[in-house]
Amino acid sequence: MRSLAAVLFVVLAAAVAGAASARPVDPPGADMPAGTHPPQIARFAVLVYSMNRNAKLKYVGVSDSDVRPHQGGMRYKVVVTVADAGGATAQYQVLVWGIPGTYQWMLLEFKKIKIN
């Protein structure tokens, strides 16, 4: 369990650093706290899921997002479109909990909802 937490810490640090230098593809939601954008959250979720499941998934975009305060942090519910190694796309409902401005983030759910 500790090794997974260490991997998540490193992955989040890399995702945050990469997202800070890259221009966002999707505009951030108006109700999102500063520094937390749905594409950034979705990329984090795809990366963590892919590493955990040894899957070759690639982030494509975000079609819906919602954020709510939850247990001292924020709960992000995002619908993300993902492409597999063959190029086929599917949509997933992603649930991420985290504290903006920290490295405390957890992927709680990554569930397929629609095949394109």
Rank of each mutant, 00 (worst) to 15 (best):
A55N: 11
V60I: 14
H37W: 10
A42W: 04
M51Q: 13
G61K: 11
S50A: 15
R68C: 00
N54W: 09
M51E: 11
Y59Q: 01
A30H: 07
A45C: 10
T36D: 11
D64F: 08
P38Q: 09
R53N: 10
M51C: 08
P33T: 02
A42L: 05
N54E: 12
R53K: 15
A34H: 07
K58M: 12
N54M: 10
P39T: 11
R53G: 00
S65A: 15
S65P: 00
N54H: 13
D64W: 08
N52D: 11
G61L: 04
Y49E: 15
L47E: 12
Y49Q: 15
V67K: 01
S63G: 13
I41D: 03
A42I: 03
M32W: 13
T36H: 05
V60T: 07
L57H: 11
D66E: 14
N54D: 12
G35V: 05
V67Y: 03
N52W: 11
N54F: 12
V46Y: 02
V48E: 06
V48C: 12
H37L: 09
D66R: 13
G61H: 02
R68M: 06
D31G: 01
D66K: 14
D66W: 03
P33H: 08
P33W: 02
A30W: 03
S50L: 08
I41C: 05
T36P: 00
A34Y: 04
V62K: 06
N52I: 05
A42T: 07
P33Q: 04
P69Y: 07
A34D: 14
S65F: 07
